[in-house]
Design a protein around this nucleic acid. Sequence first.
DNA 1: TCATAGTTTCAAAATCCTTTTAGCTTGCAG
DNA 2: CTGCAAGCTAAAAGGATTTTGAAACTATGA
Lengths: 222, 222
Amino acid sequence: MKILIIEDESGIANFLKQGLEEESYEVQLSEDGAQGLEIAIENHFDLILLDWMLPRLSGLDVCIEFRKQNKQTPIIFITAKDTVSDTISGLKSGANDYIKKPFNFEELLERIRVQLRPLSGEHDVFTLRDISLNVSTHQVFRGNQEIQLTQKEFALLEYLLRHKGEVCRRSRIIESVWEIHFEYSTSVIDVFMNSLRKKLNLSKSEDYIQTIRGIGYIAKEP
Amino acid sequence: MKILIIEDESGIANFLKQGLEEESYEVQLSEDGAQGLEIAIENHFDLILLDWMLPRLSGLDVCIEFRKQNKQTPIIFITAKDTVSDTISGLKSGANDYIKKPFNFEELLERIRVQLRPLSGEHDVFTLRDISLNVSTHQVFRGNQEIQLTQKEFALLEYLLRHKGEVCRRSRIIESVWEIHFEYSTSVIDVFMNSLRKKLNLSKSEDYIQTIRGIGYIAKEP
DNA sequence: TCATAGTTTCAAAATCCTTTTAGCTTGCAG
DNA sequence: CTGCAAGCTAAAAGGATTTTGAAACTATGA
């Protein structure tokens, strides 16, 4: 696994390099924002550790520019205590996590592992207003209330959220969720739609999931 | 919390002592390496602040000798700017962190807190309501009742508590606890879950550990 | 070597998820 | 407005997974 560290304080940079190399990561260093961005774009890394305060180009700008290139590499910000609140808003600019100085090395390792994990499995979260569905942990929340769903309920909701805003035909749902690939008449969908709406507490007036008579269903933002 | 400061410049030493005492740490001073080492070995401290340049025995040697005694107390080096790179290699000799002179007192406090955090039970002890599991002593308690667990039972509970609040898939549990890294069909997990629940006396209504049908298990706070 | 504790397999029983069934409600066309 | 088809809902039937106890197997130390 290759990690790029963009950090101007050589003390911290070398400490990180050494520590990460001991964990058998391949590490490359860069000391300023502009150069770091260039290296990041022209090479492949599995993860980038990015200091917030950098000469020539700030960490935030590096992150924004990098994402503009449509690069998905996870980015973890390294930030001083007093700029934490800025950083949190910075997460919206496309970073994946942040850690504040001074940090515990074990904690950093843990965060790196968390970011690299998705490479070996998917880590997808789908949302619909206040409903969120996490494929990898198999959890569903409405607000901060966790909702217990069974497998089929979960699969059905996942299908609808993956196609949020699109009309989902019954035939397609049956194919994807139930893996029935031939003409077949059943009302399982209705039954599971019903229990989904019950568990998620969706009244018909709030049309999170609308019925389209004769066709199927659609999950919709307002 | 008791802190030992080994520092020969009395100006800095007293400044630190005063500042830390205001933060309600108990502080003891020592002015040279050899004496400091002796004090450190013969008494219990929660943390040691160690100057790099010391008369009679250098900070590095103090650190090495101290660790030879098999002591785990966290050590933070205080180092002059131009010896930082030496210090980093010093971290390998068993120190936990370093801070360079001149330093910001707030930052030092933060680093001390980072080092002391593990002592307050986050590192080795995992809990779930009234259940606690201590990795280093290999003990498990429910309330103040100690529960005797076998290796596999312990490993399974440890895995669940380390991932408290997350859904733990059977496949992941098998990987981590049984180290089986390929597709494998067995019901060992179920059997051990069963004996765990029995030994810990977990009735099904109190859902400390919930079953997630078709997926795995989850350990949950209320 | 045997005895013991720990681990794993197996299969019956219990649980609860899925599907079918059937009566009821709703929306739409005539 | 009426009737029918589509969708909703509750409950029973059917099916799959998990729980559980017991037996078989394995490792360890006396």
